[in-house]
């Protein structure tokens, strides 16, 4: 029994830690693009990578202030969104999907390449750039604190607090936007672009705005992750993270302000809980070694998440927060 409680505590920490914030912010960005506007951005992780490396490179290579690094990261994300959007947003939705997925993979390979090593340190990545940020913490970042049966370092706690603040702010922004006429236009574009064009709205501009906004939020996620881990390594930014963020979004409910937030937390909770409980069960011999060894756990938990998603889509296709009537409607 104590194993279950331990597993819940560990999983609860994961659901509140910076990794959860990372996925939540990725998913919040995707929610703007995919959930509200209907844009298929399959390369959200590229925006996160530019955010993380924006800080890392600015601070360690160019000797700039941490906050200038944040600005550099955000600017890089905006530029990437414009570059990806300019040629594709006039075309059908599929083109953006193709271009973003290629850009995410291409950028990661570029950042880890030998020729980029002077700037990105190649596969080793960059570390020691978050000192200025941790110094702002109102408590000692080296000490450890016990919260609800789990142990947090002061640094982790500080990143989590600022991270959740960012999540709150971006949710407030999206809430404000989506209840405005701007949000109405954007949701109409998701339903039918041509109808919106015929009513005198410049669809292209709205799509670009949504792509940039989602990209900026994704970059913030990447920054939280980089600052949380204390390092920026190109291979941390695998595109699988984009799809985990999509899973979080669908889990929580797309086109809902809090859908991606809850979805991201639950995703991390399930992953960590499954990991802890399976390990405990194997150690206690409840699950025989022949069936499952502790080395398999890391993979099996993703299988469980996949199963859970399938069950969710069968029984609750709208996600946790979604509106069933809305999902059941004929998409046309």
């Amino acid at each position: 029994m104590s194993e279950v409680i331990d597993a819940i505590a560990v999983a609860g920490k994961a659901a509140l830690g910076f990794q959860a914030i990372f996925f939540v912010l990725l998913a919040v960005g995707i929610n703007v693009q995919f959930g509200y506007t209907g844009l298929l951005n399959f390369g959200q992780i590229a925006f996160a990578m530019l955010g993380g490396f924006g800080i890392a490179i600015s601070v360690t290579k160019w000797g700039l202030d941490f906050w200038v690094g944040v600005a550099v990261g955000l600017l890089a994300a905006i530029v990437l969104a414009l570059l990806l959007g300019l040629p594709t947003l006039r075309l059908r939705a599929d083109y953006l999907a193709i271009v973003t997925i290629a850009a995410a993979e291409g950028l990661r390979l570029l950042f880890r390449s030998v020729s980029a090593t002077p700037l990105t340190n190649g596969t080793r990545g960059i570390s020691a750039f978050n000192g200025d940020f941790l110094a702002l913490a109102p408590w000692t970042t080296n000490a450890r604190y016990r919260i609800l049966g789990t142990s947090w370092s002061g640094g982790e706690l500080w990143v989590a607090v600022v991270g959740w603040l960012l999540v709150t702010l971006s949710c407030l922004l999206i809430w404000a936007l989506m209840r405005s006429p701007w949000g109405r236009v954007v949701r109409s574009i998701r339903e039918d672009e041509d109808a919106v064009r015929a009513l005198g709205k410049n669809v292209y501009v709205y799509k670009m705005q949504a792509l940039v906004l989602g990209g900026i939020i994704g970059a913030l996620g990447g920054m939280v992750y980089a600052v949380g881990t204390g390092s920026a390594i190109p291979d941390q930014y695998q595109n699988a993270n984009t799809f985990l963020a999509y899973a979080a979004l669908i889990l929580g409910g797309a086109a809902r302000v809090l859908g991606p937030v809850l979805g991201g937390m639950i995703l991390l909770f399930i992953l960590q809980f499954a990991d802890a409980i399976l390990r405990a069960l194997i150690e206690n011999g409840v699950i025989p070694e022949g069936l499952l060894t502790s080395t398999d756990v890391a993979q099996i938990r993703f299988v469980l998440v996949g199963l859970g998603l399938m069950l969710l889509l069968v029984f609750r296709p709208q996600g946790i927060f979604g509106d069933r009537r809305e999902v059941m409607l004929d998409a046309r």
Binding site: R184, R187, S188, R190, E191, D192, D194, A195, A198, E326, L329, D330, A331, R332
Partner: peptide, 11 residues
Amino acid sequence: TFQLTKALSRL
């Protein structure tokens, strides 16, 4: 208007 009606379903 359009031949195939374009009501924005989820609005």
